[in-house]
């Protein structure tokens, strides 16, 4: 079950993640508000951060197995985040050794060092400038990380070479859009 969940997420099935979000969100908020003296809004943000971090860690291959129930895992990570939130508020030093057993890599590394960048970025919707086909192709290659052969089949291309060519074209278009925006941003 636990491995199934990780495999589903890895293969790009977001529905499983949304199910988890639905199943645990409100209980988590109640628990956080009651036990950690945070506001409902703070608890909501923390829960969303946890689910996103969970997703990123799975898709990046950092999290390959869970050594406890998913709910326990989320609450342990939540506890860590909530304590950090309080720590930031109170400017106090906290030790987190008791959470380190939760994941093989430790909770302290569960949240990316670029986490803030991930969470607070302001992103123009570059992908929306691409055609539907390109968006799907990029999703299949770079989000779901499917092999060329499978992508070619899904997209109805004659062979893998066509898929490779299309991948290049779409990616290039996106790079150009992004670089152009970046330059405009620097000029501004």
């Amino acid at each position: 079950m636990k491995t199934d969940f990780i495999n589903s997420i890895k293969s790009g099935k977001k529905d499983e993640l949304l199910d988890v979000y639905k199943r645990y969100r409100n209980d988590f908020i109640r628990w956080a508000v009651t036990n950690y003296n945070v506001s409902i809004e703070e608890a909501k943000d923390v829960f969303q951060d946890i689910i996103i971090a969970l997703y990123q860690n799975i898709t990046d291959g950092k999290l390959t197995e869970l050594n406890c129930e998913l709910r326990t895992f989320l609450y342990q990570i939540g506890k860590f985040k909530l304590l950090n939130l309080k720590k930031r508020e109170q400017h106090k030093t906290l030790y987190e050794e008791d959470f380190l057993h939760v994941t093989p890599m430790g909770v302290d590394t569960f949240f990316d060092t670029d986490e803030e960048k991930y969470i607070n970025y302001e992103l123009s919707n570059y992908l929306s400038h691409l055609c539907e086909n390109c968006r799907t192709l990029i999703d299949l290659f770079y989000i779901k990380e499917l092999p060329l052969k499978k992508v070619a089949k899904i997209m109805g291309y004659k062979n893998e070479d066509v898929a490779k060519k299309k991948r290049y074209e779409c990616f290039k278009k996106l790079t150009v859009i992004y670089q152009k925006e970046k330059q405009n941003g620097t000029k501004r």
Binding site: I51, Y121, N125, Y126, L174, T175
Partner: peptide
């Protein structure tokens, strides 16, 4: 250049996920 664009794709994906949430 590839890494930068890939990062954007990943960020866009997270952005979409947040919209779903």
């Amino acid at each position: 250049e590839f890494s930068d664009t890939l990062k954007i794709i990943k960020q866009q994906n997270i952005h979409n996920l947040k919209n779903d949430f």
